[in-house]
Structure formats: C-alpha cells, structure tokens
Amino acid sequence: MDKIINVPINKEEARSLVAGEKLLLNGVIYTARDAAHKRMIEDYKEGKPLPVEMSNLAIYYAGPAPAKPGQVIGSCGPTTSGRMDLYAPQLMEWGQTMMIGKGLRNKAVIDAMKEYGAVYVTAIGGAGALLSKCVTEMSCIAYEDLGAEAIYKLTVKDFPVIVTIDSQGNNLYDTGKKEYSK
C-alpha cells in the first residue's frame, strides 16, 4: 500500500521514511537542475537572497518539456541526480529535507542526509507523461532565463515516488541489486 505524504516535510518526518517505501506526494515541490543549483550557490556567496525558503524544502531534479495549450505542464520526469551531488549537501545544511530524482548519489550527499535529516526519493526516469498528470499547478518563481532549467513551483497530487536512500543511509540501489543478482 502506498503511503500518502504531504510535502514539504520536516526533518523528523524525513527521518521516519524508510528505503523501499512507496509514497504518493501531495503538496508543493520546486524544480531545480544543475544550472539553478549553481546559481543559488553563487547568489548566496555574493550575498544575494535565495529564491526559495530552504527550510523543509523538497526539490525535484527536473526540467519539464513545454506545456501544450490546455496542459498544466509538459512531460516532467526526473533527471539524473548525481549531477547535483556537488551542491546538495549545502542545500541540506540550509534546511532541504527531500530530494526527488533518479540515479546514484555520492557519499558526501548520503553523509549530509544522515547529518541533517533528509531523504532521497526517486520517480521513474522516462515516465514524464505519466508524472505530468500528477502536477495540478505550475509557476516559474526564479531564474526564468534558464528556460526548462529555471526554478518552478509545482503543486502535486499523488505524485508517485520510491524512498531509495533514507536518512539512516539504507540504500535500495545496493540492497535491491544484491537481492536479484545471480
């Protein structure tokens, strides 16, 4: 049975999620890819305000396709999370509690998840059409010049994800592979 979760979540809620659990997310998440992460960190270094409230933030690593007339959002599956590994620990230090993406994370990210209380969940890579149906509102809130790579605020309903690495460091990529390797 899928667990229904209201996002954003706080650190305690993040720590309660366990690798292997299937979730349906409801609430607000923000998209950001490499370019937006890079700019947020540069902005911070230059003393500029950050474009979103970092506390309890849920970030979706995604760059949607353009919406067709009548659509809320175009296809919007996850991009490869590893490209954000360089930036993610800083964002968790600032308060981010959930990362939504696909693919492997490095040790620095997993260490930061344990330290700050954050969870890594994955959506199905390549299922952009299906996931677009779970987005009910979309608006660009920062870095509009980055196009698909800008920061978009998404309201999601029953957005399906799988807890892949939890805040204890349990990693479904490792345990899943072990279970089925012959």
Binding site: G74, S75, C76, I124, G126, A127, A129, A148
Partner: peptide
C-alpha cells in the same frame, strides 16, 4: 521483483498516456 514489476507497468502506462494525449513520452 515486485517493485520492478510495478515500475515496468508504469513505464507502459506512461507510453499509453503519451500516445493518447499526443505528448512526449519523456521530457528529455
């Protein structure tokens, strides 16, 4: 794998939605 089976099912549903709604299968 049960999780794997569900994922493959969703991948097929995704292709069905793309075909029916005439939208990209993947955003990339």
């Amino acid at each position: 794998s049960p999780i794997g089976k569900d994922i493959l099912k969703d991948i097929c549903i995704n292709a069905d939605i793309a075909k029916e709604d005439h939208i990209p299968i993947c955003q990339d």
